[in-house]
Nucleic acid binder design. Structure first.
Lengths: 199, 199
DNA sequence: GCAGTATTCGACCGATCGGTCGGTCGGTAT
DNA sequence: ATACCGACCGACCGATCGGTCGAATACTGC
C-alpha cells in the first residue's frame, strides 16, 4: 500500500495502472484485485490512511493542552513533521483536496476519509475560534485562515522538484524541514510586512 | 484550447483522453493531432499559455512602480484576479507546480513555460529582496516566503469543492474573491497571532 | 490426515488509450 | 483551370486499461 501511495502521489489516480502497482509490490494484478475490489477502493484506502494518521496525530498533540497560540504552533509542527516524513503524503493529500470531481462514490473507505478530513478541519477551526475569543489570535475570517494554513504547509511539501528549485536544495532534508517550521510560525506571528505606523 | 484546459484542470494529464477533448471542442481526434503533435504538446501549450498570461500581467503591474510593500500588495491582487478569472487556471497551475515528474521532454512549448515560470518567481524574489533591503519587509527566508505566497494564493483557488465547503460558498464569487485579497494581504501585514510582548 | 479458507496466479475480456494513415474539402494564388 | 495548402475526418493500429474467472498453492484448525 505504501508502494501504491508513492505511485499515486507522483502521477495521480488516472496516471498509474493496477498492473504497475502490482509489479511495484511484487504481486500479480489479479492478487491486487483480490485485496481491493476496485482501483477506486485502493485509492480511497490510501487517502484514508493518510488522513486518519494526520487526524490521530493532531488530536493527540492538541490534547496536551496549552494556550490557543501555543497549540496552533504545535499544530503546525506536527502537520509539517507528518507531511515531511515521506514525500508521498503531501502530494496525495493535496490531490485529495483539489481533485474533488473524481470518485464521488459512497464507498465506506471514502466516507471514512471524508470524516477524518472533516475532523481535522473542525479541530483547526475551533482552535482558531478559541484563539480569537481569548485575544491570542487576530480577528479574521476563519475559513480563509484555514485555507492559508493548508496552502502554506501542504503545498510546500507537495511541491517536489519545483520546491527544491525554489529553496535551492531538498525540501525534505531534516534541517530544511525544521526551517520550514520556523518560517511558517514566524509568518503566523509577525506577518512579513513591517507596518511603520504600528509603533 | 480553453476546453482542453478545463478538462486537464479537472482530471489531470492522464485523466483525459484526446478523444474527449476533441469531442468537447467539436472536432475529431485526428484534427486535434493535426494541431498538436502529441498529447504532451497540447498539455504544455495549455500550461504555457497560463504562465505567459501571469507573467505578462504581473510584469505590467509591477512596472507601475511604488514601494516594495505596495508592489507586493499589487502582486497579490493581480495574481488573485487572474486565478479567479476561471477555476481552471489555478488547478492547472498547481498541477504544473507539483506534478513535476511527468513530461520531462524538451519540447519547445515546455521550455517556454519553464522560462515564464522562472521569470514569475524571479520577479517575486527580487521584490521581496528589495523590500528587505529597504526595511519594508521583515527579514526572513525568501524561498520560504515565496512558497508560502504560492501556497496561500494558488492552492486556495485550486481547492474547488473542498474550498467551497470550507468557506461556506463559492470561492469564485466576486465578493469572495475580494475577501480573499483582503485576507491574504492582512496576513502578510500582521500575521495572525497577536504577540502580547510586542507593545 | 483432511476440510476449509485465504492468497496467489495466468489467461483472458471488452473498452479505451495515444497515435497514424489515406483521403476529402474549401480556399487562394497563379 | 490548376496546383497547392491547411483544416478536417473515419478507419484503423498495437498497447494498455480496469476487471473477471478458474485453477493452483499455502495456511489454518481439527
Amino acid at each position: 500500500m505504501e508502494a501504491a501511495e508513492e505511485l499515486f502521489a507522483r502521477r495521480g489516480f488516472a496516471g498509474v495502472g493496477m498492473s504497475e502497482i502490482a509489479e511495484a509490490v511484487g504481486l500479480s494484478k489479479s492478487t491486487l484485485f483480490h485485496h481491493f475490489r476496485t482501483k477506486a477502493d485502493l485509492y480511497a484506502a490510501v487517502v484514508g490512511r493518510i488522513l486518519a494518521e494526520i487526524d490521530l496525530e493532531l488530536t493527540r498533540t492538541l490534547a496536551r493542552g496549552g494556550g490557543a497560540a501555543e497549540r496552533l504552533d504545535r499544530w503546525v509542527d506536527v502537520l509539517i513533521d507528518l507531511l515531511a516524513s515521506t514525500p508521498a503524503h503531501a502530494r496525495v493529500l493535496l490531490r485529495s483536496l483539489f481533485e474533488d470531481d473524481e470518485l464521488s462514490g459512497e464507498l465506506p473507505e471514502q466516507q471514512e476519509a471524508d470524516k477524518a478530513l472533516y475532523r481535522i478541519l473542525d479541530q483547526a477551526r475551533s482552535l482558531l475560534k478559541e484563539g480569537m475569543a481569548s485575544g491570542e489570535v487576530r480577528a479574521a475570517s476563519i475559513p480563509h485562515l484555514l485555507q492559508s494554513l493548508i496552502g502554506m504547509v501542504v503545498y510546500h511539501f507537495a511541491s517536489g522538484e519545483v520546491g527544491d528549485g525554489i529553496v535551492g536544495r531538498s525540501i525534505f532534508g531534516a534541517d530544511e524541514v525544521e526551517r520550514r517550521k520556523r518560517e511558517v510560525k514566524a509568518f503566523l506571528h509577525h506577518g512579513i510586512i513591517i507596518d511603520p505606523e504600528k509603533n
